[in-house]
Amino acid sequence: MSAEVISESRAKSDFWQGVRLSMPVVVASAPFAVLFGALAVDNGFSVLEAFLMSALVFGGASQMVGIQLFGQHVAPWLIVLSIFAVNFRHVLYSAGIGRRIAHWPIIQQALGYFILTDPQFAVAEARAASGRTVGFAWYLGLGLPVYVFWVIESALGAVFGKLIPDTHALGIDFLLPIYFLGLVMGFRKRPLWLPVVVASAAASIIAYKTVGSPWHVSIGAIAGVLLAVILPPHHSGVGERP
């Protein structure tokens, strides 16, 4: 009995530790949620549809791409394919985080993958890299506030979005790259970080100029990952078992 009490209180404290770590993500994603809502209505979505897309897709960049194409009256299958392409990076996150959460019950894993976003992966992976286990309570504490705020703020943005005066002067259109750059810098201590970043940057810029958006995301990512795979293992700091 006492063991249960101890494990329950540990789960609670793990959950709140996750919630604390989620706060920067909640704050950083708030402008994008509001912006998404505003742009969605602007591109012909209803408030309910903007809310539904945030609740079901829960992927900022792909939602932005989706509503942009919707506003341009692109064929529905192409919109869905573009959402898939922008989100294709999650296949790689999923493969990475799968190693960390394989011990969870299957329902918890199914839920865990649903809230697997860029920052969720980055923070959970950082915890695993520091030698601590990634528990369900901690992971949920990290992801749930981001999800709840994202959905609510999207709906608010859809309702009040047209009141935002000058999005350019407020720099809203460029907050996303700043945020992503910060995440990239956070991984700088990893082996092969610089060559991977350079390869991905070059490949994504070339793909952006030739194939076009949104494929530059997948193509650039594959270039960086392939480089890490091709370089001899002793450079990458793995597989050096005595």
Binding site: A61, R89, L92, Y93, A95, G96, D118, F121, A122, E125, F174, L176, P177, F180, L181, L183, V184, F187, R188, R190, P191, L192, W193, V196, V197, A199, S200, A201, A202, A203, S204, I205, Y208, K209, S213, H216, V217, I219, G220, A221, I222, A223, G224, V225, L226, L227, A228, V229, I230, L231, P233, S236, G237, V238, G239
Partner: peptide, 24 residues
Amino acid sequence: PRVEAGLNAVPAAVLTTLVAPELL
């Protein structure tokens, strides 16, 4: 080991592609 090296490179590789084209 090579697959593991590839997986370790994933976050930096993907996130870079969301920033780099913005430089243009």
